[in-house]
Amino acid sequence: MADYKSLYQEVILDHNKKPRNYGTIECPSHHAVGHNPLCGDHITVDVVVDEGRISNIAFQGESCAICKASASMMTTSVKGKTREEAETLIQEFLAMTTGRVPHEACPHIGRLAVFSGVKDLPTRVKCAILPWHTLNGAFNAVGTTSTEADADPMQTPIGDA
């Protein structure tokens, strides 16, 4: 049985209340919009990659606590890292939250392990991974073109019934 209480831990509630790197960046080198049709949530991610390293990152949007905290902690986790390091972290985060790999087996996940509980909440996995999808979309877009999450190859369809 999932330990649901572990999902709404202090650190997540704190990042929801006081999101870090919240806002937009004027001239990002990469930008994407992520959308979760299940709940209407959407976030934007702006990134500045400078000589292969993420020198600045920001996010903005309307979302639930899980999504906002995930985005906030994502920005603090990848800031200063190389794009390759960030991409490794994206893969580890997705593997952990979808339950494919336990968080103990994710060498770079660190304190992002607080999100491991969502693997037992299928309807909430999307909330946690939306920022990471969006960052991935930003990296893989041509120039600064926006990419909708629907066009994101990592995105799986979500019904609205």
Binding site: Y4, C39, C64
Partner: peptide
Amino acid sequence: GVHPHDIGTLLNQ
């Protein structure tokens, strides 16, 4: 100040 999905998950708890 609380998103409906957070309400739903916490009520489900």
